[in-house]
Design a binder for these strands. Structure first.
Lengths: 342, 342
DNA sequence: CGATAACTGACATACGTATGTCCAGTCAAT
DNA sequence: ATTGACTGGACATACGTATGTCAGTTATCG
């Protein structure tokens, strides 16, 4: 009934504690026959290492770093805040968690920053940058030092990270498509799709998802080509002004990325936000306010607290060689309106 | 930099380890003056007890019980499954978690069941039953035995539980109202509201929320009086048949409670599910299937895995005298459509 | 066969906390 | 001055694991 200990294993296997320890911790100087007996005993008794006791004995500390894009990004700010909030709670028990901001727009700058990580004093990294060949190589280097790497928010499929923590952006796009289809169920018109840049995987995937749903179920709605902002306020104003006047049948705007503050400014100026259906991503001070003002109809959210805690739990599990409780680590695509805002 | 231990406290306070222990664990035989010095040292050094080490020393086991309504309820089944799934993970580390099913419809049966709990071998209870005076008294009795009690899914405001784990049902109702308003933004008609019973707090609160939003923002939509099913299939069929024919302008159905399987059967028979907007609560095999078939437009979900883990974490924190990480324990009102189904 | 290498076990110490025993000191009341 | 109640300290043991030392036992090879 009670959990077996190493002592039980030793007794069951008919060997000494030392031998059990040698097997369990992959040390040498143990005969294959005895190793087998220990493994069999472990399996038979269902032994699982008491990580707490082990950590206590080793005075273990986990050292994790979040690598996040620098710059005026409200979403990243919320992540940083979530990391800070998680610190001092049970989550970061026995862990030092740092945040490193990198210039994500410049692959070389990213790599240079990653090189400053002291790999000998690190257990895990949660990384949120666009994947480039340089970044991929840098990650391979980090991994080769025995450090666990999880991709955060946008996946790094070619970097073979140990885990991805974030939402499925294709499904997120589909969700927006479905929402727009239902919000505009009997209406005809066009939908403006904007983002900062289509080089980020998230935006590409979201756009695919959107089109897939709308092209199937909502033929009466026409999605316009994606407009890219490149973080340029003037450009935002200019392109939106043009788009609004060029499409008098405009019914909705879908903002796939950041830059919502300026975008909303422009829309207030050139269109009627009460008539337009507007959907954006990520809960920030800007989108929160816009929801309350009913300027945004819905926001697609990945809970940043969950994101951060999940990354930390996953890194920890990897370090402990434990397995991951998938159901808990699944980041959900939340639809937030004014009424279920939190 | 490193966490202070009891030894540091003893040194700082100029007393022995024994005295520190006496103060920390509220034992007697310690002069107020010394107690003060210890407390001051604790505060000065920022000492926090290492729960893991303490649990190890005490060979502590937490014993928790989930008290859930019996009967053919798909939602409860998902909770039971979530409890089972959480078992064997880090969450239930050092904890025994049991499930007790009670006949929630009968307050006396509930109380009788609660009386069978062995209070001397219990640390915490998560309870999901309607609040009645009898239940309230039974909970008071449990609490007086030093056992922590959290309300699950529906709050027990008069029982003064140590915590409530669940969504704000008033906001959930408002969310549905907002969704219906947006789904039917330019349409006029009536909305059918159904539930199993309006004695459950959840349904009452959801209905209030719904009406508040619709009466303010969507005057063109008329909400009909709530129909109660009382778990009676025949009644469901009969009342729905009548409602559909009596309201040719019926545009939407909002199912606030359980019994969705039979309800959908009836609607298939008497109405056109493709034309009707239908929103229900809770992700079960039934609602999941109906979402995939596009018979349901949206489901309002409280993630049961989160619910269960949250209850366990909260109970544990209470037992440890630790404080609760509110951001993590906030159960979100999720809007699930076919596209963001998980 | 003997030397050497590979293996094994007994034992000790440590991590931070809980808890018990035992002894010594303090202080007021007798 | 003695008693006894109260207070405090020193010390030991334990929880489950990690890790080191050291002596002793096998196996292997020339």
């Amino acid at each position: 009934m009670v959990k077996p200990t190493v002592h039980d294993i030793a007794r069951e296997a008919g060997v000494s504690l030392s031998t059990v320890d040698r097997v369990l911790n992959g040390r040498k100087d143990v005969r294959p026959k005895n190793a087998e007996r220990v493994k069999a005993a472990v399996k038979k008794l269902g032994y699982v290492r008491d990580t707490n006791a082990a950590n206590l004995a080793m005075q273990r500390r986990y050292r994790f770093v979040f690598v996040l894009p620098d710059g005026p990004n409200h979403f990243v700010e919320t992540i940083v805040a979530a990391v800070a909030e998680a610190s001092g709670t049970q989550i970061v028990d026995r862990a030092n968690v740092d945040v490193m901001l990198v210039n994500a727009a410049d692959p070389h700058a990213v790599v240079d920053s990653l090189k400053t990580l002291n790999l000998s004093e690190l257990d895990g990294v949660a990384i949120m940058v666009p994947e480039t060949p340089q970044v991929r190589d840098a990650i391979a280097h980090i991994k080769s030092a025995g450090i666990y790497v999880v991709a955060l928010v946008s996946d790094l499929p070619n970097s073979k990270c140990h885990h991805f923590v974030g939402i499925d952006n294709f499904s997120a796009g589909k969700t927006v498509g479905a929402l727009l289809g239902k919000f505009l169920r009997n209406e005809t018109g066009s939908i403006l799709v904007v983002t900062n840049s289509m080089v980020a995987r998230d935006s590409i995937e979201r756009r695919y998802g959107l089109d897939e749903v709308l092209s199937q179920g909502s033929r009466h709605l026409k999605t316009l080509p994606t407009i890219e902002f490149y973080d340029d306020p003037d450009r935002i104003h200019e392109t939106l002004k043009h788009a609004v006047s060029a499409h008098p049948d405009l019914k909705a705007v879908y903002s796939m990325g950041s830059g919502n503050a300026v975008m909303l400014d422009a829309l207030r100026e050139y269109a009627d936000l009460n008539e337009l259906v507007v959907i954006a991503h990520d809960l920030t001070s800007v989108t929160r306010q816009a929801l309350l003002e009913a300027e945004l109809d819905a926001v697609i959210v990945q809970n940043v607290g969950h994101l951060v805690r999940s990354a930390l739990r996953v890194l920890r599990a990897k370090c402990d060689g434990a397995d991951i409780f998938e159901a808990q680590e699944q980041i959900r695509i939340e639809i937030i309106m004014r009424e279920n805002l939190y």
